[in-house]
């Protein structure tokens, strides 16, 4: 399941989508708005997407993860709009027979989302706004 949405999401709902009898592990990555960057308070984050292309790219990443890691299922939900510190931004989840594949797939998917999905973040601080130039790091 792929979703680019203004609405918040529920980890429990995501778990219920992935929970099946053959699944032994579900690994989640939850990205939240960080309230500080380089010592400066971030008051708000604006997340913008080129929605059609972002949804297509997220689905491509999901399908690649299924093939590459042999996992059972995966989902990616990315929020857009104006978000406050500590609010949810992105949820990536992978379900598999055992945890090793699920961990690897989840880690790979969030790196690919950051590298490939046409989604951008603008942090609003007391000094104004700045677009985040993302680099993939843990």
């Amino acid at each position: 399941m792929i979703r680019v949405t203004e609405d918040d999401f529920s980890i429990e709902e995501a778990a219920s989508i992935l929970r099946r009898v053959e699944v032994g592990a579900i690994v989640f990555f939850l990205g939240v708005v960080k309230g500080f960057r380089e010592g400066e308070a971030v008051n708000e984050m604006i997340v913008e997407a080129y929605k059609e292309a972002a949804e297509a790219e997220l689905e491509k990443i999901r399908r690649e993860a299924l093939e590459r890691f042999g996992i059972i299922d995966a989902l990616i939900i990315h929020r857009v709009g104006r978000l406050k510190p500590a609010e949810n931004i992105v949820l990536v989840a992978a379900s598999a027979g055992s945890r090793a594949e699920a961990f690897k797939a989840c880690s790979w998917m969030i790196d690919e989302v950051k590298k490939r999905a046409p989604i951008w973040k603008k942090e609003i601080t007391a000094k104004g706004g700045r677009w985040v130039k993302e680099t993939v790091k843990p």
Binding site: Y50, A54, K114, W120
Partner: peptide
Amino acid sequence: VSVFPPAGGG
């Protein structure tokens, strides 16, 4: 035609 910066979400 859509013109956009490299990815920066996640």
